[in-house]
Amino acid sequence: MTRGDKILSVYLAAIFVFILAPIVTLIVFSFNADRFPSLPWSGFSLEWYEAIASDSTIHTGFKNSLIVAVATAVISTILGFCAAYTDYRFKFFGKMGFLALAAMPPTVPVVILGIANLTFMAQINLAGTLQAVILGHTVYCAPFAMALIRIRLADLDPDIEPAAWNLGATRMTTVRQVVLPFCRPAIFSAMAITAAVSFDEFMIAWFVSGINETLPVRILAMLQGQVSPRINAVGSLVFLVTITLVLIAQAAVYSFRKTRRNV
């Protein structure tokens, strides 16, 4: 190891400590017997996990978040695929505008997106429903799915589809038998990522969920009431779900490699 390598490793370690310290703290104190997050640790306990396990508002929040995450993942990925494929296959006037528009939602501050969603959902009588949260999250998540699938499509030899047509496959069949199988890793990855984003998302959910609280909204409500170590336990669970989804997405991306063009 050269001196430069050492400095680089230390630097990298410092970054990870900086990023992970709060999360590690959260997880560590979720198992602390004491109700105050202070050192020294007063002993291992599952008390706070037992407490949330018997809390029905957390059950409902978790269930809501799960429903919203799954629905959002499916709808966003379908929309994202359609947008990415449109970009890949067709040339048309205003394509740049179309792409900019399709990629825009995550660039809008979420507070604004939340308020806009609330106003719109109220107009169409959906405010306060889970459907509204799903719609809001889909708007926010579809661009991520589109981006992931576009990256994959960029590796699809432009001759592949015409080759399938040439061998007797109609356009629809080609999408089903050639494009979708090729995009499969990106589609899995997009579903996992959008589910993770949705599961975590607080702002839009807070504006439009009403009484149908998702887990992050429930957590804030708990925080506003009293600081309880139960929050550490819920937070740890949310982290576990999210990091699992992200790892799934990573694994899917990793499996891209084998079928990259010109490999």
């Binding site: 030899d157 001759d159 047509w165 040439n166 109609t170 069949t173 090729f182 079928t259 063009r261």
Partner: peptide, 20 residues
């Protein structure tokens, strides 16, 4: 006649084989 009904298969410069 669309390409999928022509029965004139082609060999491509890039081969265009299905990678999956």
């Amino acid at each position: 006649v669309p390409p999928w009904q022509r029965e004139m298969p082609m060999v491509w410069q890039s081969y265009a084989l299905f990678p999956f």
